[in-house]
Design a protein around this nucleic acid. Sequence first.
DNA 1: CACTGGACGTTGTACGTATAACGTCCGTCG
DNA 2: CGACGGACGTTATACGTACAACGTCCAGTG
Lengths: 343, 343
Amino acid sequence: MASGSTRPTSRDVAQAAGVSQAAVSLVLGDKWRGRVSAATAERVREAARDLGYRPNLAARNLRLGRTRTVLLVVPALTTEFFAGVYTGAARVAAEHGFGVVLYPSPEGVGPARDPFHSAQAALDGVIASSMAADALTAIRGDQLPLVMLDSDPHGSLGAATVNLDIADGVRQVADHLLALGHRRFLHLAADVPSWTFHIRAQELAARLDGTPGATLRTTRAPISIEDALAAAEAALAAPGPRPTALVCDDDKLAAGAYKAARRLGLRVPEDLSVTGLDDLALASALDPELTTVRLDAELFGERGMEALLAVLEGRTPEQGDIPVELVVRGSTAPPRPPDPRAW
Amino acid sequence: MASGSTRPTSRDVAQAAGVSQAAVSLVLGDKWRGRVSAATAERVREAARDLGYRPNLAARNLRLGRTRTVLLVVPALTTEFFAGVYTGAARVAAEHGFGVVLYPSPEGVGPARDPFHSAQAALDGVIASSMAADALTAIRGDQLPLVMLDSDPHGSLGAATVNLDIADGVRQVADHLLALGHRRFLHLAADVPSWTFHIRAQELAARLDGTPGATLRTTRAPISIEDALAAAEAALAAPGPRPTALVCDDDKLAAGAYKAARRLGLRVPEDLSVTGLDDLALASALDPELTTVRLDAELFGERGMEALLAVLEGRTPEQGDIPVELVVRGSTAPPRPPDPRAW
DNA sequence: CACTGGACGTTGTACGTATAACGTCCGTCG
DNA sequence: CGACGGACGTTATACGTACAACGTCCAGTG
């Protein structure tokens, strides 16, 4: 039911182009010079395009006895360090026609005890973060079963979605700050065109709209400490009454905001309350520790995989967003009294 | 030359056990009940073990038209967040006999433009971090070309190695602190049995041994902020003259050390100079920013891949460690004068 | 004694690809 | 006019596996 009939093979392409399977292989393998006429070659390529032909890698690898794929074993993906290792290796590999597959070795009761299990061929399905949207066209082209993470449920090309309840997280943050007495808000938004960030802005605005006297300004920065520092500094130094609460789209942005506050001589939380979102290790390394929203990344992954398994087995994935939790730490406090009379 | 002859197939196993290839498939696929005698099944398993037989995944996948492999597309591996997503997905996947392959979507001028290239079958070779040593036995079992990252050059089972010049980094840290006037050192070591951490301790001790009046104490913690906090607090509160310089095996440990110092009422860098190693985003988020050693992770990955390509092509990999760089920031300063007389 | 059926395997085939080994047609040259 | 060779393809095969379809042998049954 999933993808109608079966995937086209090189033989299907051959039939469509009116040639033999061997000719297709020669043309697509770019070994046709002096063996096939240019006109025929073009016909073959056209047929392949029309049918959406993709070579079967398992068959190719079996035939060639070679995979042009390499495994990178790393201890665990808990730091930016091995992410960089991967990036560098993948770049060089690509230049040589190789691919790289990541195998983060299990911590504790490891999942896959056999590293080579990770290296099977082709794909049965895909789990994709909405932040990696650029890769999605290629994915859809293959008609593979797809599960989207943190993506707009109404605009996901009909794919199943698994979402964290980010809206609720933002709501909790807003309510926490409002309860402390804050009314002038600044939103340090991530400059990333992804549903999961869009929903943050939308929900924060909605919550504050319902509160008399609350005001909201917004500034925007790419997710990096330096960019966040610059944007936050500019926004906090802008004319007009200074915000007392700074809501950041994630923890890294909040780290930049800390530095901006320091530069401007503002103390956290006395002069400015700051919140983040993610609860990275960074959050509790900051001084004061950051009030933020804890996202259960592992559960997120589990639910994503379970949803994909459901799709593969023809079942309907479970619905329901994954709950998130506000973690109150030292970066939020009541605003100082607005005027000396309270003194 | 690499792996002598070719890998054993199920037919080789069959011949060794004196049965047909089909019987081997039945036994190893656990479908032999009522079809093969228990004695014969045992003979087959034994032969497979003796020959070191591993099924050819490309062939299996071709035959089954199914891979039990799933792709996880994530934006980029720059935070702990997606590491957790991977871990969770991999755990559930493993419980269902699936493997997960990571495809971090390219940032900027991405390397592999086709996500599916990453998902080819089997392996031509392996790049492994020395921190993932537990996976190495399985790897060696397959006789695959192997490159080790940050591993003891003399104890790597004859595999090629690519190393960062960590020893030089530690030397630079020590010299920097010595030049500032420090003499009483505390080493906050990572409690990880890996060459790359062993060399840190060794080199620091060697450097300080050569300096008259210098003393070195060591404490040890797993790589986590909380564990580092506990270990550093205990060590700093220990009787005897307090160290003036705290050398940490990596940035995360240093973040824990900051918190320990804060708890004890020590100010960084006035009362205690602190250094890290890695230069993660964390390092510049700390207050004061952390003096640390910058490791070029991407270059590390590139060199690793290049070495593997060399091995695959029968060439000898380039030798030479990758240079690292001391980054001096605000966490290191001269120690306060040891006695009031200097006042 | 003829027949049945379980126990124990084997033979054969297909998955989709790449490429070696063959044709065939025709223009050209000696 | 016979032969030759380049241009343009095709046929056949193998990679290693899983499993459907077939034997064969012998104990038990009517």
